[in-house]
Write a protein that binds this DNA or RNA. Structure first.
Ligand SMILES: [Zn+2]
Ligand SMILES: [Zn+2]
Ligand SMILES: [Zn+2]
Ligand SMILES: [Zn+2]
Lengths: 160, 160
DNA sequence: CAAATAATGCAATATTATAACATATCTTCT
DNA sequence: AGAAGATATGTTATAATATTGCATTATTTG
């Protein structure tokens, strides 16, 4: 899942295709700015902050977009389930399975910052169960697991 | 768990006693500022932001503490497991069971803001399992469940 | 007591996010 | 096509959250 050991262009193409298809199906407009922001988010598998997106877009045009421009695009992408917000980092990551509405379950490597999306139905159902036991009406679950990805844990072990 | 239907003074006393005992046992210093910040965090069962803590402390002394003062106290309390950070709100909440080192599992009511700490071993073990399947070395888990608490869901149902 | 360590005070600044209002673009309907 | 309404973007300013760096004070240790 590092950006180096796989064809990341393919990740980007897939994400954009899916986004286009989903927006079309829902009569939502994937405008140029929204697409550029989505592209920035998908520029790697690391979560990216809003202001890093601004910096990235600045390099592609004469003037950097103002914060509201980017935040509005991010809101659109969040609303349409195309990206997730990584709360523990105040940052954003592309969604692996847009369309299938789901809650975000993320593995975040503290060393290389790569962020992987999990889809654990068991984890999800335990969250539901726990909420139910407290008579809590669950609307949104956020699971963020931080630690070391496989690659990094091996590299650290090797260094010592 | 609303602040109204229970003796919250008792919650505060308990939290402070536990904090004092834990710090003593670990040879950590629960200084006046740290204690005041802990008290502010425990002023209710709602998560509180750092700047609200500053405001609260301002009322108790002539000058409001500077941000670093409060953030350092918060860091100390976090390090010692006396409070949790609520990532989805950029805010802080007192820990119900300090001492028992554990990850934070929170139920956050979007209406009344009350935040309850869960201790679901099943949820925890599913998180561990999911991480293990990806060969991820899990260090920290953050589970934040947002929705409506029992009280609020009843009140909303009643209003309609 | 002196030295070392830990905690706090303080000023400036960095980072993340939103409010308010003007303008432009797209859609829909006639 | 043209007008009306809805949606999206531009722009400026500002709010809210968090950290850096350095001086000072308090506490612990030897
Ligand atoms: Zn990729
Ligand atoms: Zn890694
Ligand atoms: Zn209470
Ligand atoms: Zn509530």
């Amino acid at each position: 899942m590092t950006t180096s050991n796989h064809n990341h262009q393919k990740c980007i193409r897939t994400a954009l295709c899916q986004a286009e298809a989903l927006c079309k199906a829902r009569a939502q407009r994937l405008t140029p700015i929204r697409e550029q922001v989505l592209r920035s988010v998908w520029s790697s598998h690391k979560a990216i902050g809003a202001y890093s997106i601004i910096d990235a877009l600045a390099k592609q045009s004469s003037k950097p977009p103002a914060p509201p421009t980017v935040y509005r695009a991010l809101d659109f992408l969040l609303d349409n389930g195309l990206i997730h917000r990584v709360n523990s980092l105040n940052a954003f990551i592309g969604c692996n399975a847009p369309g299938h509405q789901h809650n975000s379950q993320l593995l975040i490597c503290r060393r290389c910052s790569n962020t992987t999306e999990l889809v654990s139905e068991a984890l999800n159902s335990q969250a539901n169960k726990a909420a139910k036991q407290e008579n809590f009406v669950l609307e949104q679950t956020c699971v963020e697991l931080t630690g070391l990805c496989e690659t990094c844990s091996r590299e650290i072990a090797h260094d010592e």
